[in-house]
Nucleic acid binder design. Structure first.
Lengths: 249, 249
DNA sequence: TGTCCTCGTTGATTTCGATCAAGGCGATGG
DNA sequence: CCATCGCCTTGATCGAAATCAACGAGGACA
């Protein structure tokens, strides 16, 4: 899970910072922003085509099938991206947080729905305007291609998880990945926050919420993780958790 | 499954054709080539950084973890892309054929392995050289971003399949998707060729080969598909197959 | 020709996770 | 305060797919 960042230069200037100064200050290296591709003085070009928005908890801000008019860059909060089947079954394809770019998985129309898990602040870019910015700053497009490549790698990792891993392996893999993301934006030795519900976790891992709960209990029982009152998780034994993430039983 | 092509202009000139004239002639509109982004007279720039190769059946031509030096464009034949777990479990993330571009899911190192299912002819591009071609022809990079977006859409569709669909739904979804690809390169009312084994299909659909075989038998029993002696499949009732692809039981 | 090997099909049994069910805890609100 | 609701946990049972097993068809090759 750490090699996937190697190919992407870490940003010293985050796009989000440029547009909403002060936000995400502790997170400037978070994941891969759309950052760093522009010189400081060019960032205002991007800012000019961005509109800042706040999405309340539970509100959907992208609907599958809608005409794809915008890209989004998350500044704060967490959202879930998912696809539904007509009978209500749901697959969450990813959780996105500060620094994450949303909207690549779209042709004419969005191929997914996005919903805020808690209050989300984001920047909205018009697709056509962003395209013209690309023409002026090709480095931005290069960066976007890197972001897309990175998402493809993650998607294939998730296919491996969904197609071939057991319930405990899925949960262990998720916790490791989630803690990797979180530690880029370090909150010290704090417990890892899990803003999503067990049901969301199930929809992400291809399990039911009961199975997620049981798998987490199993990890607690073995003193591999600790779950706080606030639902935060602390990883006690990263090595044994890693062992669970790939090996059978 | 048909809307995913809407956002991508169909190519009138296929890159593969330009480099190896005559190949893929019947497939020029196949999937999305890297095509059409360049004017006819500019294609030789691309050709100059490409090397044609033949990969025998069963031979691996990309190994997960290897330094990512090349991109590939398939001209002929079919290959499987996959990831393995240490204990041998395998997830095939995609089958690629004529016109398909391979190598996006890589940062510094490939995140997947690629192996020829039958004899494969392909063009190999040096990554760094291709990058410099981008600088001269930004339209190529734009096209590559479109290809990546399209692959992301497919990957999320596959996550839904792996996480939430039943065995029959998975097989039905695969057959529909596979026939969509094939009909772009029309072989008339012929049966649909399935060059991969049942085991490959299982590794793609997150099932065992026995379950794939049983699901296919179930579709045969209901006269929804017909399986020829050569393992080719003919879809007899596309509507009922579509119904299976999304609905429970 | 016969043997070996890969691939596919089908049947019997097992197992992991889904489903069904009950109850706990904390937040919200009358 | 208690009632309700959302979220989580745990237990009991069920079921879909995995596993184990046997066999058949076709191709490669001595």
């Amino acid at each position: 899970m750490s090699d996937h960042r190697n190919g992407l230069r870490r940003s010293s200037i985050n796009l989000s910072d440029a547009i909403i100064p002060g936000l995400c200050a502790g997170c400037e290296a978070r994941h891969i922003g759309l950052c760093d591709a522009l010189a400081d003085e060019d960032l205002h070009f991007l800012a000019s085509v961005a509109k800042s928005h706040t999405v309340p908890k539970g509100r959907m801000f992208v609907a599958e099938g809608d005409k794809a008019r915008h890209f989004f860059n998350i500044n704060r909060g967490t959202a879930k991206l998912f696809k539904d089947l007509p009978d209500g079954r749901r697959q969450i394809t990813g959780f996105v947080g500060a620094g994450d770019f949303v909207g690549l998985a779209a042709a004419d129309h969005y191929a997914f729905t996005a919903e805020a898990i808690n209050e989300v602040r984001l920047c909205r870019f018009d697709r056509t305007e962003l395209r013209s910015v690309f023409t002026t700053f090709p480095a931005l497009e290069r960066r976007l291609l890197d972001v897309a490549s990175h998402e493809l790698i993650l998607a294939q990792e998730q296919m491996l998880l969904l197609g071939r891993k057991s319930a405990i392996e899925r949960l262990a893999s998720f916790l490791l990945g989630w803690s990797d993301r979180a530690e880029i934006c370090p909150n010290g030795a704090q417990a890892l926050a899990l803003p999503m519900t067990r049901a969301d976790l199930g929809d992400y891992l291809g399990l039911t919420f009961e199975t997620v709960s049981r798998a987490l209990s199993a990890l607690k029982r073995q003193n591999i993780v600790e779950v706080g009152k606030d639902h935060g998780v602390r990883i006690l034994d990263r090595d044994r958790l890693s062992a669970f993430a790939t090996s059978r039983s």
